[in-house]
Design a protein around this nucleic acid. Structure first.
Ligand code: SF4
Ligand code: SF4
Lengths: 147, 147
DNA sequence: TCTATATGCAATTCACCAAGGCCGAAGAAT
DNA sequence: ATTCTTCGGCCTTGGTGAATTGCATATAGA
């Protein structure tokens, strides 16, 4: 697997919204410029996210996008799956019939486990978590917490 | 990410060899037919595996391939990485310079963790383990272990 | 020698990612 | 009502890599 640009951009865009707060309406143009993302591409990604109920769009003057729910209630997995659909290492995992060998395939068992481990990480972190991490990483003066 | 056919076929081929034992020389034609893999494609994959020191090739009449090491000393990760190189969710993980934001990117931290969890599974299982699993799954009469 | 087998390189086909363009729809401000 | 801004949907393009196939060569056993 490889992360696609769509996932990359989508996460960045959503994190930008999460960072500004749940109800701040932000137009594509701002996000696109701030995070260096092709605007039309981001538009397409955000459309998927709107349809999935993660974002809410607001048309017209001073329109833009907001989160549909508080950042603490949206997991990273929610965002990623809304962008490119369910993630699977092979087709035989969601659909065992796609491979005639799947009944007695030990590799498949391994892959199921591997996939679970991977997704656990994305399920256990919400946008709020990531924003907090981001803020603490770019703290202004981390070397003087207690002068 | 998505498993490629090369990985899929490569694993199947290597498992076929592991199942027959370390020193049984088996030609491509047999593996190709038994596991339903395009022969020329498997040839290319096995070349990578030979160069990586996982397989040993034997040319000429009655030639073919064998494992270079006992099945218990080859991990699933060894095979997969020999086929498509190191696996990474994003370019920024092996090479932080590839993204200007990598210094203060919280997503990257998450991805590093996720990748570790995924690879752990592949490192902890050898070909021997998988072959054992395979045999126990297709046991002839599992309902009568002790008549 | 003859034949079976791997090796190496080239070429092809196909799917999908990434991006951009155009026009229409919706909604706020006036 | 008009106008301007912003999202929405559709279609097109270019590029990259996966998946396969073909052919000529090298090697080694019978
Ligand atoms: S051989 Fe096993 S791992 Fe591969 S597609 Fe079939 S069931 Fe899945
Ligand atoms: S933004 Fe973060 S996750 Fe994305 S490529 Fe850059 S460092 Fe990696």
């Amino acid at each position: 697997m490889q992360f696609t640009k769509a996932e990359e951009y989508g996460m960045q865009g959503v994190l930008h919204l999460a960072d500004k707060g749940k109800d701040v309406v932000t137009p594509l143009s701002e996000i696109s410029e701030a995070r260096d993302i092709p605007e039309k591409f981001l538009a397409k990604i955000f459309q998927s996210l709107s349809r999935s109920g993660i974002l809410r769009s607001h048309r017209g003057v001073r329109g833009g996008f907001t989160l549909a729910k508080p950042p603490g209630e949206i997991t990273v997995k929610d965002v990623l799956e809304a962008i490119q659909g369910p993630y699977h290492l092979t087709k035989c995992i969601p659909d065992p019939d796609s491979c005639p060998r799947s009944d007695s395939c030990a590799m498949r068992e391994l892959l199921v486990t591997a996939e679970e481990r991977l997704l656990e990480v994305f399920v256990k972190h919400t946008l709020e978590d990531v924003v907090h991490m981001e803020r603490s990483m770019s703290a202004p003066s981390p070397e003087k917490p207690n002068p």
